[in-house]
């Protein structure tokens, strides 16, 4: 386990000091995809959010995005929540949560892992 020494202040600045957002309960493997809609002229989306829109152009999980933009998950959730509220992305919960993954998928995974 690696822990950085201090608290993270900058993320709070990035999210406008908010810790609650519509992105709070996003599953780590929920799939995010940019809608392609250009942001409204009067909305201010930051460079981080632009990056997210780029990464999510062909679909990416919340975890993929957080790792790519190298920001803590909580921050990324807030940023994704905002983009969603502005209609710039769509979010789909993982297929696995309900119903359970099918037998066929699991067999495919087993064979795929063996072939690695």
């Amino acid at each position: 386990m690696d822990e950085e020494a201090g608290p993270v202040v900058r993320p709070f600045a990035l999210t406008g000091g908010r810790a609650r957002s519509s992105g709070d309960n996003l599953d780590l493997i929920a799939m995010v995809r940019s809608t392609g809609t250009p942001p409204h002229g009067d909305t201010t989306i930051g460079p981080e959010q632009r990056r997210i829109l780029e990464i999510a152009r062909s679909g990416a999980s919340v975890a993929d995005i957080a790792s790519d933009v190298d920001l803590p998950l909580g921050v990324v959730r807030v940023l994704i929540g905002d983009l969603h509220d502005q209609g710039l992305i769509v979010v789909r919960p993982p297929v696995t949560v309900a119903p359970q993954p099918s037998e066929r998928i699991l067999k495919e995974v087993i064979n795929g892992l063996r072939a690695l």
Partner: peptide, 24 residues
């Protein structure tokens, strides 16, 4: 700024692509 104190914890995050459209 929310009055919260947080520290960052790193997780190990790996991704295995079984095929296009199926990721572990």
């Amino acid at each position: 700024v929310e009055g919260k104190t947080t520290t960052t914890v790193a997780m190990d995050f790996g991704r295995i692509t079984i095929r296009e459209g199926l990721v572990v």
